[in-house]
């Protein structure tokens, strides 16, 4: 009888957890799901006010697919949406690639070489982990303009490529790879670079995905830095977030188009997320274990 009781209790407990889990999932998804049909609403329909005792119309009366075409026709200060998608994609991809490359090379140097002043240099780099962005951002504008980078595509990703945290993260990962793994390759006379490429890279897929996706998302979603350093060339170098921000301020009468542009802007991050979902979720977790 007692066994039956505890079994019964366990089932109830499980059911309670399932109910809470479903509620949490619904809560987190709600803002995204709720917004979706609004992309097909006619301008006047988006902020339609309900009446006392009335109802809320979630779905559009007549789906207005034109919204998705309209997005590509809008022209905000010479910036066009398709153009912004392309240039942001190039910026984000470059940031992703070079962030992995530069930080991984540095981490390999710190993890597997024994040069003079190594710890001094490493501490120097780590120091910038604790410097808030605003303390360097304002004067960075001066630096990039001295380098003639203002209003070029490079200013959008070059300053942020090297990152103390990414170096630290890669290094931690490399330190956990046992020395014996590379000894055989060393005996065969493989160069250090070859060991990095053929042994370390395949073993470090998780941190590469974390840093790479992080860098891509950082560029894709960045708004403040582009507004500070792109003052001309707005037609070609305007970033997606800038277009969305301007659309939002200009187009409050036609919010369906704004939502449609948000949905299009979410596609690349979502694709990345679903490809690397498993590794991302597992890797973010490790980032807190030092």
């Amino acid at each position: 009888m007692k066994g039956f009781c505890t079994h019964y209790k366990k089932k109830i407990k499980e059911a309670v957890y399932i109910v809470i889990a479903v509620l949490v999932i619904a809560l987190f998804l709600f803002p995204l799901i709720w917004s979706l049909p609004y992309s097909l609403k006619d301008g006047r329909e988006v902020f339609k006010m309900s009446e006392v005792g009335g109802s809320i119309s979630w779905f559009p009366e007549k789906p207005c697919w034109d919204n998705f075409q309209e997005v590509f026709k809008v022209d905000v200060n010479g910036g066009r949406f398709l153009n912004a998608l392309l240039s942001t994609f190039v910026v984000a991809s470059c940031n992703c690639f070079f962030s992995i490359l530069i930080n991984m090379l540095a981490a390999y140097g710190f993890a597997r070489f024994n040069f003079k002043f190594k710890n001094v240099i490493f501490t120097y780099l780590l120091f910038f982990m604790f410097v808030p962005g605003i303390a360097i951002q304002l004067t960075s504008i001066k630096v990039v303009s001295e380098l003639n980078m203002i209003n070029t595509i490079f200013v959008l990703f070059v300053p942020g490529m090297a990152n103390s945290y990414s170096i630290f993260f890669f290094r931690q990962y490399f330190l956990n790879i046992p020395d014996s793994v590379e000894e055989a390759a060393m005996l065969d006379g493989a160069s250090r670079l070859k060991i990095l490429i053929s042994i370390f890279v395949p073993l470090s897929v998780t941190p590469m995905i974390i840093i790479g996706v992080g860098a891509f998302l950082g560029s894709w979603n960045s708004y403040i830095w582009p507004t500070l350093v792109i003052t001309e060339n707005e037609g070609t170098l305007t970033q997606v977030s800038q277009i969305l921000y301007m659309l939002k301020s200009v187009n409050s009468h036609d919010y369906g188009v704004v939502i449609a542009s948000c949905i299009i802007a979410m596609i690349p991050p979502l694709i990345l997320f679903f490809i690397f979902q498993k590794k991302l979720v597992e890797g973010i977790a490790i980032s807190g274990l030092k």
């Binding site: 140097g109 070489f113 024994n114 120097y124 001066k142 380098l147």
Partner: peptide, 30 residues
């Protein structure tokens, strides 16, 4: 395998250079 440790400088150079130009110099300037 001898004296390869100095190769380490080459590996950390790009990151050191970039962080110096885009973090250290701006901070000192600030």
């Amino acid at each position: 395998y001898r004296n390869q440790d100095n190769l380490g400088y080459l590996y950390v150079l790009p990151a050191v250079l970039m962080l110096t130009v885009f973090a250290c110099i701006p901070l000192v300037m600030a």
